[in-house]
């Protein structure tokens, strides 16, 4: 910082006090336009994006948390491998590790046996880097899962690959044990 200068204490304190007082009021909405020949209407708020939008929408499932509504649905039976939905990756990698082979095979088998079933694979990254670039990186992981399923005979029409990028990432990780939780693809079925 080459250019550091002092500001007038009293003035700033006065300003900040005024700012606080203003901040406490509930100021009505009325944007821009100085001369109100044609007053600008206030910014209109769209309906909350998720109100009433959930019918039939894909719902996130966290593995091991569905014991209560397992019923006869193998996808939700905690004793069935199909209830396992998370595939973790190494750093900077979209290679599916050997330990997930049986999980991927089980889901492939299920999709082949249920032609109507639809799956979304959601890729995830940690928070390092920019949101849009991480969205693209996360996509690589969901595509890697899809390709593994394709190799086992599953058709593209049953799988959609998307990415949440860093949006679901645990924040402010201090170590790799935390970061590694975010290097993940999640499997979600339509109707979950």
């Amino acid at each position: 910082m080459q250019y550091i200068h002092k500001i007038n204490t009293k003035l700033i304190m006065g300003l900040s006090l005024a700012v606080l007082l203003v901040a406490c009021k509930s100021t009505p909405i009325a944007p821009a336009k100085v001369e109100d020949k044609s007053p600008a209407p206030p910014v209109a708020t769209a309906k909350p994006a998720d109100s009433g939008a959930n019918t039939g929408a894909v719902k996130e499932v966290v593995a091991d948390s569905n014991a209560n509504n397992a019923g006869n649905n193998p996808l939700k039976d905690p004793n069935n491998i199909l209830s396992k939905r998370n595939i973790y990756f190494d750093y900077d990698s979209d290679a599916i590790k050997a330990e997930y082979r049986s999980l991927v095979e089980a889901h492939a088998k299920y999709l082949l046996a249920h032609a109507d079933a639809r799956m979304v694979v959601q890729g995830n990254t940690d928070e390092r880097g920019t949101r849009e670039y991480n969205l693209a990186l996360g996509q690589r992981r969901s595509v890697a899962v899809k390709k593994a399923l394709n190799l086992l005979g599953v058709q593209d029409k049953q799988i959609e690959t998307i990415s949440y990028g860093e949006e679901k990432a645990a924040q402010n990780c201090a170590d790799d044990a935390c970061y590694s939780q975010n290097r993940r693809a999640d499997i979600v079925y339509e109707g979950d």
């Binding site: 203003v22 100021t27 909405i29 009325a30 944007p31 206030p42 910014v43 708020t45 769209a46 909350p48 994006a49 998720d50 949101r131 849009e132 969205l135 949440y164 990028g165 949006e167």
Partner: peptide, 22 residues
């Protein structure tokens, strides 16, 4: 949200329980 350049007059454009970006 949209606000004046000084941060005043914030108005919500759209809200959601799912992420909004870009």
């Amino acid at each position: 949200q949209v606000a004046d350049a000084d941060g005043y007059n914030p108005q919500t454009v759209v809200s959601s329980n799912e992420p909004i970006i870009s």
